[in-house]
Design a protein around this nucleic acid. Structure first.
Lengths: 211, 211
DNA sequence: AGAGCGGGTGATATAAAAATCACCCCTTTT
DNA sequence: AAAAGGGGTGATTTTTATATCACCCGCTCT
């Protein structure tokens, strides 16, 4: 099968890894092209072979799956990496995503779902286990996540004055600071709100109910 | 069909709504028990009938789907609400989740996936469209994830050791710091987690999946 | 009564974030 | 071309957060 998905498996638990490899090998459209029991081993092998997707455990002795992913990305490996772990920790999830993971599945996932997820990831999609999605919802609700970085007090003041039409010289006077500082604050606002003009900044701030 | 899922549909686009209702009605295990074309109408009808799940559009004239959801929750409606929208805006996603949505699907979703998702939501799970999951990844990567009440590295270590039963003297030795410092770290943990004892702190940390 | 342990107040050095400013470039207007 | 305003790079000061420690209080054992 020339168009089978070539999967590489990284997990320190031999029993789990072997079982997973056996399971995946039975599938028509998936081909296991290699396996490793540590991050160090994974890096060495992956750099030398061709593969389409990496299944990576997180908790491993030595390098963690996240550190391993970081090194692989640094070495130019662009393959999608699907984390397959027992960890529901927020920290692991956040770090895995930041390190460049394409998905985050728990090990209690049903084989069919895993198969389905592998195909979705190959298709360029991002996937999370339902439990992890729930975790994300919780993070959002507890405001640990926001749509934008939090603005500081001075930045909010700046936006208020900006929205009432003040220009740089007036802002400087009203806030008792130099014009240079005004501009710096505004630049920081631009970055946080992901905009590039004063008008946009005010519009977005109003929309986000920041002012 | 007594155990069919009773669905209520809210969407201002009549053509889409009618099509959706027709599609859902054909399914064995789903029964459409009502529909509305505005948020106001939805609130009035939903309060008067029995239903298991609400499919809600977001962009509607008058009340938005998010505002409607907010009012419903305020009125004590506990039904899971699945947002079904064309909006991929992060703001809409965040607001929908905060308002109490159980899922967020794009309107380009395949009918079978919609059916599958409705069942998952009824089973208490949280679901996102792949494109939306991608948005979540983006938010995490761009650090819009403020993680405000984040504990420091030392505090996390402390909790790990605490959870394995260490007492002050042992913590001090294991972390190579004085007992006084151990106590200070623990006090800071108390404040951040809003608790007042070690046991509570560990319990809350586990519940928040911080350790 | 005196160890032993959990919990609380205050203090200090260092690291990180916020606030401040000077100077430069580009466009528009005069 | 000079002036004025918006937008950008870099650097410094001030404030806040983190990590560290010393000392005190109150309870519970023995």
């Amino acid at each position: 099968m020339s168009n089978a998905i070539r999967v590489f498996v990284v997990d320190d638990h031999t029993l789990f890894r072997k079982g997973l490899v056996s399971l995946l090998s039975e599938l028509e459209d998936i081909q296991v092209v290699g396996e490793a029991s540590t991050g160090e081993e994974a890096i060495e092998i992956v750099m030398g072979i061709e593969s389409d997707l990496i299944l990576m455990d997180i908790n491993m002795p030595g390098m963690s799956g996240i550190e391993t992913l970081g090194v692989l990305r640094q070495q130019g490996v662009e393959n999608p990496v699907l984390m397959l772990t027992i960890s529901e920790h927020q920290e692991d999830l956040v770090e895995a995503i930041c390190a460049g993971a394409s998905g985050y599945l728990l090990k209690n996932t049903e084989p069919e779902i895993l198969q389905q997820t592998i195909k979705q990831v190959i298709a360029g999609k991002s996937v999370l286990s339902p439990e992890i999605t729930e975790q994300v919802f919780e993070m959002v609700r507890s405001r640990k996540i926001g749509v934008e970085k939090k603005l500081t007090e001075r930045e909010i003041q700046m936006l208020h004055l900006l929205s009432s039409g003040s220009k740089t010289s007036q802002l400087a006077e009203q806030m008792s600071i130099s014009e240079n500082t005004v501009k710096t604050h505004i630049r920081n606002i631009f970055e946080k709100l992901e905009v590039s003009s004063r008008a946009e900044a005010v519009a977005k701030a109003v929309r986000l109910k920041l002012i």
